[in-house]
Design a protein around this nucleic acid. Structure first.
Lengths: 189, 189
DNA sequence: CCTTGTCTATCTATCGATAGATATGCATCG
DNA sequence: CGATGCATATCTATCGATAGATAGACAAGG
């Protein structure tokens, strides 16, 4: 019986939410199957192993993120505006059920991650740092590439950290105030 | 058979290392028991439930950290020197087997943490922010309490984030360069 | 003798994964 | 047109491994 909804997509959507909320380790084929209304064996049909699912998930996450960031830069060349939108991405994850960035939560679980998934963690960080660097470049055309990259990296990890601890303390004010402090220090334009 | 070594201590030491490396969820009574040379049932004798072990672990972690930080402030009233030592604490965890701060890794796993353990996550963050605030106060006697606390929080979460992503990318240079950028921006004295 | 600490043995629950049956739809061929 | 055959997608049932947890025996020391 070919059902109308695309179950592969439904599984990925549910899995993404589950990983962002409880991590890759806590992701269970049975729970996932129950959520989308099929059996766990059917999930294995779409994603033979858990590693396959995790990698597909992380790959799409990075891809979607990159696409969205590209759109942002296409809309405006104001560094302040771009960074505002960027900061809002991570904030909305927190506001929406205390979720985390896939890259952040998977970095914490690194040791029990299959190699295919680890690679995607690296890629996500790379994409984000590269984008921030481009945004910074708009404001500082004459600064060296190395200096800009260092700053971009610092911004990225600072935001990830703000999200992490804000989540750990169940207090989104920690995120907001930390970001504000980054701004005041001039770390973020 | 009463063995000379204090098994309760041995279990806590091994458990601490395990959680820092692979997280609370991946902590297993059987593996833990094997490491210290007893049976899993004996671990349950010392820590009836996993939550008990996790809470005891986190409690001691916070306590030991607070003690060490107190010693630092007793040794010097130089904000720069204190922050150098502080930054080195988190760096050495990374350098030593890519480990993470218990509070950081547990923040990522928040949703599967027993309540007793969650409380300790909050306490650890509180202790650290309060200490950083005292260090900042040494340099800025006239700044408002609120502004100082905000900056202290921002420093704490930025360092946690640097540790998280540095671990995720298995590249300690990310930690070093990010911290350097924080310094250059004046976020960290 | 009672407390402390460890053991053996076992329970229930859940995990990822697989085998094999089944139903549907589409395409090719007589 | 209609029958055949393969691909798709789901199911039931089950596997071995591992999780946390418990009961009860046993040994040693005070």
């Amino acid at each position: 019986m070919k059902t109308t909804p695309d179950m592969r997509e439904a599984v990925m959507t549910a899995a993404k939410a589950a990983v962002q909320a409880r991590g890759y380790n806590a992701l269970s084929f049975r729970e996932l199957a129950k959520e989308v209304g099929i059996k766990s064996a059917s999930v294995h049909y779409h994603f033979p192993t858990k590693g396959d699912l995790g990698a597909a998930l992380a790959r799409r996450y990075t891809q979607d993120g990159a696409t969205y960031l590209e759109e942002l830069l296409a809309q405006s060349d104001s560094p302040g505006w771009c960074m505002d939108r960027y900061i809002e991405i991570f904030r909305s994850a927190l506001a929406n059920d205390n979720r985390m960035c896939l890259c952040g939560i998977m970095s914490a679980e690194l040791d029990n991650l299959p190699p295919e998934v680890r690679i995607e963690v690296d890629k996500f960080a790379g994409v984000n740092v590269a984008w921030i660097e481009r945004v910074l470049r708009l404001a500082k055309p004459d600064v060296s590439e190395a200096a800009l990259k260092k700053q971009a990296m610092a911004i990225f990890v600072a935001i990830e950290g703000a999200q992490l601890i804000s989540r750990g303390c169940r207090d989104i004010a920690i995120y907001d105030q930390s970001v504000q402090a980054y701004r005041e220090a001039g770390l973020i334009p």
